[in-house]
Write a protein that binds this DNA or RNA. Structure first.
Length: 962
RNA sequence: GCGGAGGUCGCCAAGCCUGGUUAAAGGCGCGAGGCUCAGGACCUCGUCCCGCAGGGGUUCGUGGGUUCAAAUCCCACCCUCCGCACCA
């Protein structure tokens, strides 16, 4: 007797060891087999590998194992990511004694105290996690060729030679340009302030403001706005009388703006020459000339104007800007203020809003309307924000300009805006500047502003040729799920030039700028090619000094003369040729898989860089993306404690149960949800499958080859096809669910239906089942495979043949299932009585004949049905015939699709025969005597009883329960 | 704002592309029975409402539409989640 206790860790370890000993996943080129190269974006070594990583990784592992079984030579390598500032950031925080960081390391990551001390060294930290994570991944049991492992940064000289080559290629091929780049800038730290370096203002990025110049004598009062098209509605200009303003030559032109604005302009590459400073009140009452319309309007005081936003000068469009409207109303009614600034009250009160846009919702004077609706009292009412946004949205999307806008009249607002910007640019009446739409404060407490960094090295992602090439590569690629393709197109088009150099963190130096690093996303784009080389660096055959530009040019691009390359690099000719062959054999990547978050950056970079460096035949073939793992319905969040490391999961549930819990959690772009309850239940499922298989093998069976054996064989054929198709489409959950539950249910049903199961059929079914289970629960499948007495490794065993199933037995079985369901329904309607006898009376022969004809008729017409019936109903009473026709007319429309097929089969074989075959099963099922009769042979007495019931129909016999 | 995904019978979650055995898979929970010394283990059945005969009624975010027929196709609306650049 086999042991029935299933030891997860013992079994899993055993097979992992076996795979390692037999070098099952160590892949070498083999011209006799097609290759399949799969990769996973290397995880960042700033912490333990978690279940989110495991989810994606498992999906890839399933495909790798499946493809092997389909005869592909599969290469699945792995590496670790060290580049960037995150690792150094953690070390920094520990050095500063940041308790939150230390707490997370201890509690979530399970790092011992004494190790945390050592984490002050970022390199130690990276090494530590690399060691730990490699061990965990090996315990998880992935089909990885570990000989090719590496990590990034200059701490790995071999890898750095490759990145160096990559960037030299990009530079030579013209994909790197010099240019400017705007950042959120902290003037105190003198460095860009990323989202995570901010005290407040997360998610705030530079936006374009338009500058409109109002002539004031020999200078310009320069106002900032998001809505330059509204210049046609200007009635006045606002300045804050208490704020400081300055007069300065900006690129040689005399401007008046708030004092703070000068620094911002200077940081946006304007030349600034300040001539004078003064208070805003000095400007009040002056007249300025409007753009386009050339009207003279007054400068008026407004407290809502913030000198640190925009230019500290706002032009007033009271009809369309609620702020302006309110400020004007306030001023009209404030005698004291008017007097203070020596303004003519009559003149101010005579200012009327100028309508220049109309919308269906708010009309042509929206400010007044919305201010009234929201009950806004004065210009310091916070509700003005909302009012502004409501008007802006409506007018921008649905507004039309009125006929007082010169040649921009009667246009959609969006169009008018474009044209106005264009025109102002042309005639010098306007300019642009970048500004933060809301305040950003650096960790050091300093208010940030936009700075344009000049003389940056940039990846020229905005290049139309590069985009076109990337889009072409995308077009040639398979993307799973297909909805994700839209995302790629969007991001390829959206990308602008990307500054790729950094001064902090770990990484590989820019080849021509040794004091700067290549940032983390940019050094990880074509590294999959390095997997071919890394194996030889790891075993010492190649040294970093061999890996020159000429070396990679030859091996990866087939450029150069091998003899010369050999001389220059010190690599033997034989090895060079071998490497060239290996590279050519394995490359390109056939499938890369990641979380959907990487579409926006890494995967798009991956496409860009491949098309920039490699010829078309080496471009990526397929990309698959999936959702983001949630834990018990919550997004993963370490500091909130919502986090499960892969290590913890394996310790609790083992590899196989963890695998299927992840795989069954989601499909496509949906976010999978990890539930610990499900993981526990999946352990039970695995144990249950184990017991189920073992119990099948321990029994004596007779040899049968009847309907049920046919049914089982064909049902499994159907499953094989379904699972294979699902895997080919990367529908891994579908495949896993079919393999786990589908075949399990088939076997159960077979055993329930047969009193004498056939050993041979059963054994074949189990073998196929294990084969299908292997990609999902490899350890369990392998273990049972060996218990079956197989001396081969299941990993190497070919995938079952995909063949069309014979539907006939499946359809016949469907008939029986329907019959059983009907019977249960009747029993239920009777109040769940226990039956003592079940009489099944099948339809009379003439009905069957008539029905066969009916099924061939496509259009259901009452007259046609009657005609067919009459043809076969010789000797049947008019009453009976009428009743039957009525019944048929009622049910016929519902006989469609599969059921039609079922009926055809049933009528061919004969209900009687099917029922008799199932006789003993039915008695067992209903625990009562079962009689099978036909309408043609029942006694008149029975006819009377049955007469009260709906008449028998082909496929739906009368059921009499006693 | 832009782009993407999604709202299904107590919960989780299939189905939707290719409209029709779809009252709607599977799992959990709950109920009944079996096995058993016992079991929170395992096996079987049931689980929208009504019905002592296989029937009827009402369901798939909301409101319309197309169709003989819609969870499935079309339109509008409401709600949720995710990404949006120096950050891995």
């Amino acid at each position: 007797m086999e042991k029935l206790q299933y030891s997860f860790s013992e079994v899993e370890k055993k097979w992992q060891r076996k795979y390692e000993e037999e070098r099952v996943f160590e892949a070498e080129p083999d011209p006799s087999r097609p290759k399949f190269f799969v990769t996973f974006p290397f995880p960042y070594m700033s912490g333990p590998v978690h279940l989110g990583t495991a989810y994606t990784l498992t999906r890839l592992d399933v495909i790798a194992r499946y493809k092997r079984k389909r005869g592909f030579n599969v290469l699945f390598p792995f590496a670790f990511h060290w580049t960037g500032t995150t690792i150094a950031g953690i070390s920094d925080r520990i050095r500063r004694g940041d308790q939150k960081t230390i707490e997370i390391l201890e509690k979530m990551d399970g790092v011992p105290r004494e190790e945390i001390e050592r984490f002050k060294d970022p390199v130690y930290l990276a090494r530590y996690y690399t060691e730990k994570n490699r061990a965990v991944l090996k315990d998880y049991g992935l089909a990885i060729d570990w000989r090719r492992e590496f990590h990034t940064t200059s701490l790995n000289p071999g890898f750095s030679t490759f990145v160096r080559w990559q960037y030299l290629k990009l530079l030579k091929n013209g994909y790197i340009i010099r240019g400017v780049h705007p950042v959120v800038w902290c003037p105190r730290d003198k460095s860009p302030t990323g989202d995570h370096d901010r005290l407040s203002g997360e998610g705030v990025f530079p936006e374009k403001f338009y500058l409109v110049k109002f002539r004031l004598n020999d200078s310009y009062l320069v106002a900032a706005t998001f809505r330059p098209e509204t210049v046609f509605g200007v009635t006045n200009v606002w300045v804050n009388p208490e704020a400081n303003y300055a007069e300065a030559y900006v690129d040689g032109e005399k401007w008046i703006v708030s004092l703070e604005t000068l620094q911002k302009l200077a940081d946006q590459l304007k030349s600034i020459n300040k001539t004078r400073e003064f208070k805003g009140r000095e400007l009040i009452g002056k007249k300025v000339i409007t753009v386009f319309t050339g009207v003279s309007v007054p400068v008026l005081p407004a407290s809502f104007v913030d000198p640190s936003i925009g230019t500290g000068v706002v032009y007033s469009v009271p009809a369309h800007a609620p702020y302006d409207y309110m400020a004007l109303e306030d001023l009209k009614h404030d005698e004291a203020l008017l007097r203070e600034y020596g303004l003519d009250p009559e003149e101010v009160r005579s200012i009327e809003p100028i309508s220049m846009i109309t919308t269906e919702k708010y009309g042509s004077n929206p400010s007044e309307k919305i201010v009234r609706e929201l009950g806004i009292r004065n210009q310091s009412d916070p509700k003005l924000e909302e009012a502004t946004s409501l008007v802006y949205k409506e007018e921008f999307h649905k507004g039309m300009t009125l006929n007082n806008c010169g040649r921009f009249s009667n246009l959609p607002v969006q169009r008018a805006k474009e044209l106005v910007i264009e025109e102002m640019k042309r005639n010098g009446a306007g300019d642009e500047m970048l500004e933060l739409p809301s305040p950003v404060v650096c960790r050091c407490g300093t208010r940030c502003h936009v700075k344009i960094l000049s003389d940056q090295y940039l990846l020229a992602y905005s290049s139309p040729e590069w985009k076109a090439k990337a889009l072409k590569a995308l077009e040639m690629m398979k993307i799973y799920p297909k909805e994700a393709r839209e995302n790629f197109i969007y991001f390829i088009n959206w990308y602008v030039d990307w500054a790729f150099t950094r001064t902090s963190g770990l990484g590989t130096p820019v080849p021509w700028l040794p004091d700067q690093m290549i940032e983390t996303l940019s050094d990880s784009t074509v590294y999959m090619a390095y997997y071919i080389i890394s194996k030889y660096v790891n075993n010492g055959v190649l040294k970093p000094e061999n890996l020159t530009e000429e070396f990679y040019d030859y091996v990866m691009l087939d450029k150069g003369v091998p003899e010369e390359v050999g001389k220059k690099t010190g690599v033997s000719l034989e090895l060079l040729r071998k490497l060239r062959y290996e590279f050519d054999y394995w490359y390109p990547v056939d499938l890369r898989i990641s979380g959907k978050d990487l579409i926006a950056n890494h995967l798009t970079f991956y496409i860009f860089h491949h098309v920039a460096i490699f010829p078309e035949e080496k471009w990526p073939r397929q990309i698959a993306v999936n959702g983001f793992l949630r834990i018990e319905g919550q997004p993963m969040h370490k500091s909130k404690g919502i986090f499960i490391s892969l290590k913890d999961a394996i310790e609790k549930y083992g590899s196989d149960a963890t695998r299927i819990t992840l795989l069954l959690a989601a499909e496509g772009l949906e976010d999978p949800n990890w539930e610990s309850e499900k993981a526990s239940r999946n352990m039970e499922l695995i144990e249950s499958i184990y017991r189920q298989v073992i119990s099948l093998l321990g029994k004596e069976y007779v040899s049968e080859n009847g309907h049920m054996e046919e049914w089982l064989r064909n049902s499994i054929k159907k499953r094989v096809k379904k699972i294979t198709e699902a895997l080919e489409n990367m529908e891994i959950r579908e495949a896993a669910s079919e393999a786990l539950y589908g075949l399990r249910n088939d076997l159960r049903w077979y055993l329930r239906r047969t009193s004498k199961p056939d050993y041979k059929t059963l054994r074949e079914a189990v073998e196929t089942w294990l084969n299908l289970l292997y990609p999902f629960t490899p350890h369990l499948a392998e273990e049972l495979w060996s218990i079956l007495g197989k001396d081969t490794i299941l990993a190497n065993h070919p995938w079952p043949q995909v063949v069309e199933a014979d539907e006939k037995p499946l359809l016949l079985e469907k008939y029986l299932e329907n019959l059983i369901e009907d019977t249960y329904q009747i029993i239920k309607a009777m109040g769940n009585v226990s039956a003592t006898r079940l009489k099944i009376i099948t339809a009379a022969k003439w009905k069957n004949e008539a029905f066969k004809k009916l099924l061939e008729v496509t259009e259901i017409e009452p007259s046609r049905i009657r005609e067919i019936m009459l043809l076969h109903a010789a000797g049947v009473s008019r009453e009976e015939l009428g009743r039957f026709i009525g019944q048929v007319l009622k049910t016929l429309p519902s006989i469609t699709g599969e059921y039609k097929m079922v009926l055809k089969q049933v009528l061919d074989i004969g209900e009687r025969k099917i029922l008799e075959e199932a006789h003993s099963f039915l008695e067992k099922e209903f625990k009562c005597r079962v009689e099978i009769l036909s309408e043609d042979e029942i006694s008149t007495e029975l006819v009377k009883v049955a007469g009260k019931k709906p008449p028998a129909q082909p496929g739906r016999p009368i059921l009499l329960i006693e």
